[in-house]
Computed example of a mutant assay.
Amino acid sequence: MSITRIVIHCSDSPNFRDDTAEDIHRWHKERGWDGIGYHHVICVDGDVQNGRPHYWTGAHASPYNANSIGICLIGRDQFTDAQWRSLEGLVLSLTNEYPYAEVLGHCDLNEHKSCPNFDVKSWWGNIERNNLD
């Protein structure tokens, strides 16, 4: 599988609620899906939990699933400092693994979505600039 996108999402659950990858797996199963659609989930305490393995096509940003990795931040539009630190570390690691992958938000692929409710391209641009210094 050739990964060309790393897509950031939010769970759209109440901010700061202690949801987990297991909770999202259950929600997605309840909708009749195969299970969690994301590859990684970042909990409010910053814990990075695994969802689908990278070799399993995600179910998070149709029609871009076959060539993307999905990351889900728990919350709607407010994230903890621990989540921001974990997101930065995870995306840095993934871009080392998939150096040609574009980092973007779900809303950048679907104009009807606001998820993850922040400008991922600007956020990532700042991270990249800071890592060049």
Results as ranks from 00 to 15, higher is better:
Ile24Val: 08
His25Arg: 12
His25Asn: 15
His25Cys: 10
Arg26Val: 14
Trp27Gln: 03
His28Trp: 11
Glu30Asp: 15
Arg31Ala: 11
Arg31Leu: 14
Gly32Met: 12
Gly32His: 12
Trp33Pro: 07
Gly35Ala: 02
Gly35Ser: 04
Gly37Asn: 04
Gly37Pro: 04
Cys43Met: 06
Cys43His: 02
Val44Trp: 09
Gly46Asp: 09
Gly46Val: 00
Asp47Glu: 14
Gln49His: 03
Asn50Gln: 12
His54Lys: 07
Thr57Val: 15
Thr57Lys: 10
Ser62Val: 04
Ser62His: 05
Pro63Ala: 10
Tyr64Arg: 02
Ala66Val: 12
Gly70His: 00
Ile71Thr: 08
Cys72Ser: 07
Cys72Trp: 03
Leu73Asp: 06
Ile74Arg: 05
Gly75Arg: 00
Gly75Val: 02
Gly75Asp: 10
Gln78Gly: 06
Phe79Tyr: 15
Thr80Ile: 03
Thr80Gln: 06
Asp81Cys: 10
Gln83Gly: 11
Gln83Met: 13
Arg85Cys: 09
Ser86His: 10
Ser86Ala: 15
Ser86Thr: 13
Ser86Phe: 05
Leu87Ala: 11
Glu88Gln: 15
Glu88Leu: 11
Gly89Asp: 14
Gly89Asn: 15
Gly89Arg: 14
Leu90Trp: 00
Val91Gln: 09
Leu92Met: 09
Leu92Tyr: 03
Ser93Ala: 14
Ser93Phe: 00
Leu94Cys: 08
